[in-house]
Design a protein around this nucleic acid. Sequence first.
DNA 1: AACACGATTTCG
DNA 2: GAAATCGTGTTT
Length: 171
Amino acid sequence: MIHPRLDYDFYRRDVLEVCPGLIGKVLVRSYPDGSQFRSRITEVEAYRGEEDLACHAARGKTDRNGIMYGEGGYVYVYLIYGMYWMLNVVTGRADEPQAALIRGLEDVSGPGRLTKKIEIDRSFYGLDLVHSGVLWIENHSLPAEYTTAKRIGIDYAGEWKDKPWRFVMGV
DNA sequence: AACACGATTTCG
DNA sequence: GAAATCGTGTTT
């Protein structure tokens, strides 16, 4: 059974289309010793454009969020609270700064805990998910229902804090 | 050069 | 409820 990688066409759509599509897909982390870690994505959040006050692009392009202004299909990682790396997938087309934050996997809950478990840090910034040998996402064609909810930890985002842009696997 | 703070987690 | 901990963006 072949499990194809998600390709550029998958990522280069609006983040609100990509996020529900990511639920149930399989994140693959390949290590230098040849071993691999696989787990289904169970929770993601959408951050959408400069108008979204919760998005890191809300105050324009910077050194940190620059990758979000490019084409979808690349990795955006950043350090939060001086301790945890957040794993994001850039979506949309160039000059449409969007990203999907991977918040949970079947085997580990929490965006900070999952990056620690599968050893993802700053060195993954800008990684090409379509061609990388260390990190990518596969479609195993498994059924995946999801529900939506408000995004977490963005109470400062005014009217944007209540958008139902968190997607969680389940009914 | 200094300062404020965050898309979190853990412990008390 | 509060601390931990530091890179990044903003202000001085």
